[in-house]
Design a protein around this nucleic acid. Sequence first.
RNA 1: GCGCCCGUAGCUCAGUUGGAUAGAGUGUCGGUUUCCGAAACCGAAGGUCACAGGUUCGAUUCCUGUCGGGCGCGCCA
Length: 610
Amino acid sequence: MQLDHARTRAIKKSIDSDPIDPDSVKEILIQKLTAAVARLQADDLLPADLAPTVLVERTRDRAHGDYATNLAMTLSKPARRKPRDLAEQLVGAMQADHGVAKIEIAGPGFINFYLGSDAWHGVVRSALQQGSEFGRSTLGAGQRIQVEFVSANPTGPLHVGHGRGAAYGAAVADLLAAVGFKVHREYYVNDAGRQMDILAASVYLRYLELCGESVVFPANGYQGDYVWDIAATLHREGGDAMRHPVASVFEDVPADAPAGGDKELHIDGLIERIKSLLGTRDYRRVFDAGLNAILDDIRRDLEEFGITYDEWFSERSLSDSNAVQRCMERLKKSGHVYAKDGAQWFRSTDYGDEKDRVIVRDNGQTTYFASDIAYHANKLERGFSRVIDVWGADHHGYVPRVKAALDALGDDPSKLDVLLVQFAILYRGGEKVQMSTRSGEFVTLRELRREVGNDAARFFYVMRKCEQHMDFDLDLAKSQSNDNPVYYIQYAHARVRSVFRKLAEKQLVWDRAAGLASLGALIEPHEDLLLVNLARYPEVLESAALNHEPHQLTHYLRELANDFHTYYNAHNFIIDNAPLRNARLALIEATRQALENGLRLLGVSAPDTM
RNA sequence: GCGCCCGUAGCUCAGUUGGAUAGAGUGUCGGUUUCCGAAACCGAAGGUCACAGGUUCGAUUCCUGUCGGGCGCGCCA
């Protein structure tokens, strides 16, 4: 069955003025189908109590037209009729004025809609007119959304595991901004707590060594070279002023693991001794020297990676302002806190957590969890309509207790999305790259960036779904060859630039207006495919943003680049036929714009030459 | 033991609230260049969607169980 209809005024109008809006075509089709169902019901051809939800989708396969609906199949059972028969009736009941060139019934009962050959021309015009804005939308207008990502403890340089969270978080944030959300990018700085004390102790012990003391470095200390650097700066600026004999530092400290003791007790004992020997002021000096040096390094590292933040939120500020204490009081008033074994427990099991959690230790100190409750309460107080946390997947067990706490505080836990990022496993020469944080033998993000470049690193990190374990092939990422998807896309972009350079060499000028006016000359299958896929770009952006799935964009860009390369291979653009030449140049320039915009969103450059 | 994630082509991975013949890259094999950049293009081969049930017009997709892999289960952060 095949019905041909004149194109509607609406479609013609859209070609002449605004670009066709895929959503509006879809909406029109849904309305017409709904009306068709009502008409069949009025004629007693369908049960009157039917209230179907009509679903119209872009087709996956070009052979199935531009849009399709499964309506006849979903109605088949309640209507007790064969899907294909039903489909014929539905099509017959549709008003002719539905804006499509052809309708087909296919497969088990799909109704396929074919738009006119020029239906997608508008996308070229909007890409050229909107330039770097092409693809962006106002979907999230008026909504503020916070994205917190990386938030690595400032106890050492970022490593390749943090890199994935960085690239992913940045891409999600940029995608959300691209569809109109007001995005607030934030890094939570864990500048309080035991890990930082261990760093301070490590720095101080290295400092003592620089003073000439002989130190047996604790097994649990931070052993990286950067600790030496921090200690050296401290020693250069202040000399031996903070020196204490090693014997007094280690006095009464429990034995370390290598000596048959416990490494945790040993390091905690050292911290206490160092705190009391140095006093509050000098201890803070050592502590802050480590914190600031590492934080500066992290900030620089991320900036070089193309990632900047709106806010670096200090954990310490939460306790300094008594926000943690106030939050604990609120929790207590909610009736979900009890005392046991000298500690204060939050009964998170009331909200589905596996077990209750300590928020105040028996020594009176609040836990990291307590700070995190206060932090998340603070986020919601700031009025974000949505709050996104990007965490390493190893923290997944932590999600229920944070949501439980928000619930207990009377906040809405559904405003919080926690996106868990799995580890990336590096491969070099086909071998797994072994990593161990403790011994300092880990690959830093900086080393990775130096080895494969920022572009490949940003792209490879987001090529996979975040909950997917990822094999990161270093050799592939740095190979300047055809098997590297980053180069494939960048090459397509550079190729368009090259065409225009060639055009200039031949003393020709692209007449943009003429090109737009003669888009009807684009009748090759390659051109049709490129147009259709180009029109998908705004839809892909929207889907990738709302689903927090930048990998959708990487796959799309590869497809678009492929469509272009194929087109390039099959046809010449710089030809004598001026109207066709201008139209083709308009098409590839529009394609280039989409490639550039997509790459930029992922933090990848769009080079003019390779 | 309990909880979460994952299992799709030799390898790395897509698969749009369940839809049409399960796709792409890479690898293997074969082809394309006096012509805008061959970092490209075209073709072939390659599958029990881990396994077994269930739900229904229809299941890679949803449910249950089994097997295999990763992670988590602190008064650490």
